[in-house]
Amino acid sequence: MTGPTPLTLASIRQAPKAVLHDHLDGGLRPATVLELATAIGYDQLPASDAESLAAWFRDAADSGSLERYLETFAHTVAVMQTPEGLRRVARECAEDLAADGVVYAEVRFAPEQHLEAGLTLDEVVEHTIAGFREGEAAAAAAGTPIRMVCLLTAMRHAARSREIAELTVRWRDRGVGGFDIAGAEAGYPPSRHLDAFDYMRANLAHFTIHAGEAFGLPSIHEAVAFCGCERLGHGVRITDDITDSADGPKLGVVANYVRDMRIPLELCPSSNVQTGAVPSIDKHPFDVLARLRFRVTVNTDNRLMSDTTMSNEMLKLAETFGYGWTDLERFTINAMKSAFIPFPERLRLIDEVIKPGYAVLLG
């Protein structure tokens, strides 16, 4: 073949991809939700077949409100309370991402939400990581190897963030790569959890923060200036600090700092539209931020709720903003540069997997 491969959904699936922002409880297979619900006697699902359930999740999440979007997780979390449920969901997560061409994935979840059946926090993490390892093995056997890393999330409206930070450090050499806080932003600023972030920094451990999704610039400012985050989960509202001028876009103090320090933005296009963070894909600030050379990355957020994959997200961006293979390669390398794994591993995946994979597609 000479010349670039045509950019289609099928060809994008062949491209090596890296995802930094994917929620375990937001990526279940609908059929798995049904089967696990039956196994544990959970009878509150809004639909009784996989197709209808998938449609319900998508439609319920497409509300324009982060708070209403988050309500859909009650059903997925409910079926992830047992060792069997956690292992299966984690295994299938790895298999599904690998089948979509993802070669590196950081998948996050909140252990504190999975204690209803009597598991301890450590047992929740243990079974989840075991599932990831099973999924990695299955993906390798299928010829689609993937590296899975777990991020532990604390809910920002709760009071267990220090405990989850300690759990993160305890498991960091056994499959956990970092820490996060998530949940409704309004009324729950990142600075409420300074004790957890201080602990992470004292232990030289990685962390990202959901900020600048449903709440504006103050959330980003706190996450960066007070909490010292390495990455911003979403961060789309950084555009509140970018104004138009006769000489082109003018960056304010926060936006300049985020760009200068190469703080990665974990952008999730479809999810950002669903939660009302942006009005539509064509109005998404991804392209503006990419052209201004922020370190933008492409992510899924919640594959079930958004009915999406990494390939779908990349195709939407390519069709909307005219991106080609070199652009998608740059966004993928941005993600790998920002990964919470040691530098030699990041470099190996970039040099031995990502660049060769895109070279084939570029012809």
Rank of each mutant, 00 (worst) to 15 (best):
T2P: 00
G3S: 01
P6W: 00
L9T: 08
K17S: 09
A18D: 06
V19Q: 12
L20V: 02
H21E: 07
D22G: 03
D22R: 09
D22W: 13
L24K: 05
G26V: 02
L34R: 03
L36R: 11
A39L: 09
D43L: 04
D43Q: 14
D43P: 00
L45N: 01
L45M: 06
L45F: 05
P46F: 03
S48P: 00
A50L: 07
S52Y: 01
L53I: 06
F57W: 02
A60N: 03
A61R: 07
D62A: 14
S65F: 01
V77W: 08
V79N: 01
T82P: 02
E84K: 13
A90P: 05
D96F: 07
D96W: 04
V102Q: 10
E106Q: 12
A117D: 14
G118V: 05
G118S: 03
D122A: 14
V124R: 12
V125P: 05
V125S: 04
I129F: 11
A130D: 15
A130C: 11
A130L: 10
G135H: 05
A138T: 06
A138C: 05
A140T: 15
G143H: 07
P145C: 07
I146M: 03
R147F: 12
R147W: 13
M148Q: 09
M148N: 04
V149M: 13
L151K: 11
L151S: 07
L151D: 13
M155K: 09
R156V: 05
A159W: 10
S161Y: 02
R162L: 15
I164T: 11
A165I: 00
E166F: 04
T168H: 03
V169W: 09
R172T: 12
R172G: 05
I181A: 02
A182M: 02
Y188N: 15
Y188A: 06
P190D: 07
H193Y: 00
L194Q: 06
D198A: 15
Y199E: 02
N203P: 01
L204M: 00
H210I: 02
A211S: 09
F215H: 12
F215E: 15
P218L: 00
I220A: 02
A223S: 13
V224D: 02
E230K: 12
T239G: 01
T239R: 11
D241Y: 05
I242R: 06
T243A: 15
D244K: 11
D244M: 12
P249N: 09
K250M: 14
L251Y: 13
G252L: 10
A255L: 11
D260N: 15
R262Y: 11
L265N: 06
E266C: 06
E266Q: 10
E266S: 01
S271F: 10
S271P: 04
P279T: 02
I281M: 07
D282N: 14
V288P: 00
A290T: 13
A290E: 14
A290M: 12
R291Y: 00
R291G: 10
T297F: 08
V298W: 03
D301H: 08
M310A: 12
E319A: 12
G324L: 09
D327R: 08
E329K: 13
N334T: 08
A339M: 08
E345K: 06
D351P: 10
D351N: 15
I354V: 14
K355A: 11
G357I: 09
A359Q: 14
